[in-house]
Structures are given as C-alpha cells and as structure tokens.
C-alpha cells in the first residue's frame, strides 16, 4: 500500500505528551524507520501526517488513527516491523490498513472516565442526569452552554473503588466536545479522573476503518 492508516493506542505516561508533541515524535519515528515516506513540498520538507481527532494531553486512548503516505508500495507487515521497535513506551500499533474512509468521517468518540471520588456511581449519574451547563470558550468570549445534547449512551458503574462512566461524545470537526467539560462540571465532586478514549465512530456509528 502507499496510503497507510495506522491504528494505535496511547496509554500510560505518554498521556502527559500533548498532541503537538506527539505529531513531532511520530514524524521523527517515520524519518528513522527507513520507510520511503512522502514528504511535503516546499521550504522545510516533512513527512505528511494526518491525525483523526486530536487527543488532549492527560488523556489515554485505545483507538488513535494516523494517516501518512509512502512513495513505494509496501506491505502492512513490513511497515509494522519497521515502526514497532521505534515507538516509545505507551504507544502501540494494533492495526495497519489502507484507509477505507476519509479521516474526516469521524463523528463521535467513546470515552471512559475513571474517577476517584467519595460519591457513588448513582450519585454521579444523578449529577449528570439533567442539563450539564459549563463555561465554554469561544474565540472571543466565554459562554455558558448545556453540553448534555452532545453526550449519549451514558453508562455508570463502580469497580476497584473507582466510579466509572462511559459515554459517547460528539467529535466531528464542527462539534467536538472535550470530555474535560464533564470533569469540569463535576468539579469538587471528584478528586481525580483518568480519561481514556475507547473508540472513534463514523456517521453510521461504526468504528472508523
């Protein structure tokens, strides 16, 4: 294949690395891999990379997508072989395919929020049952808005002393909802929250391919 789509996980300490820093890291890894990477034209040629939905710093993910282009037809196995040993701890490639749909086809994302809190799962569910009004920054000002319409399929349970919430959030370009708004809304009700993206879905609600 020449058009390559990498699916990878970002778990553990690597969550402390921002999207921008991850882009640079991936670009270096590709440079180093010996793969025949297609470069951007112009002044400072770089590998052309496209990520699906940027993942916020502090968030883990089980389903990240990165597209890039090769100049020569290369088998998925070879690409995987050349990249796997170069990845830093916490980044793990789990699938390499040709893209089946546009990277911009992503519409929603599923998240798991693992909360350290004195509240029960039911109490957290209750807090999130009505309108969820948060201050949202736009380019020019902050305004209060209700994000509950952007959240679907909420699911709450307790495990190992944590309250766990899973939910699907709008994630297309125009209406991207960062799960940080949920933790901001819960505020002092929780002490710590580890957020993990579980999957990215297209408009038919199927995992991105």
């Amino acid at each position: 294949m020449e058009q390559v789509r990498l699916f990878f996980r970002k778990i553990g300490n690597i969550r402390y690395i921002s999207h921008l820093d991850l882009q640079r890291t991936m670009s270096r890894i590709l440079m180093r891999s010996g793969l025949d990477i297609a470069f951007s034209k112009g002044y400072n040629p770089r590998p052309k990379l496209a990520f699906a939905v940027p993942l916020s710093i502090f968030h883990e993910s089980e389903y990240e997508i990165l597209d890039f282009k090769l100049n020569t037809d290369t088998a998925a196995e070879e690409i995987g072989e050349k990249l796997r040993n170069l990845l830093p701890q916490g980044l793990e490639i789990f699938r390499i395919t040709e893209p089946k749909e546009k990277i911009s086809a992503c519409r929603t994302a599923r998240y798991r929020l693992t909360m350290t809190t004195s509240k029960s799962a039911d109490e957290i569910r209750e807090l999130l049952s009505g309108e969820i009004k948060v201050l949202k920054k736009t380019k020019t000002r902050e305004e209060e808005c209700d994000i509950s319409p952007q959240i679907t399929d909420m699911y709450f349970y307790e495990r190992d002393g944590f309250v766990i919430m899973e939910a699907t959030l709008e994630s297309d370009n125009a209406n991207y909802l960062n799960p940080n708004y949920i933790t901001a809304f819960l505020g002092d009700n929780i002490d710590y929250c580890l957020i993990r993206r579980l999957c990215l879905y297209n408009s038919r609600g199927q995992p991105m391919t």
Partner: peptide, 25 residues
C-alpha cells in the same frame, strides 16, 4: 518512571512532560 504517586501534581502542571521522562533512548 511510575508516575502514579505524582499524578495529581502532574495534572496541575501546564507541561507535565517536563517531569515524566519516558523519552525515546
């Protein structure tokens, strides 16, 4: 490094990656 015991501190920093190591090489 195991960042577990520092996770709350790191959560409150603008650039936590300054303190966590784990870089390539």
């Amino acid at each position: 490094m195991n960042t577990d015991k520092y996770k709350i501190l790191l959560q409150n920093c603008i650039k936590p990656g300054r303190y966590t190591g784990g870089e390539i090489n």
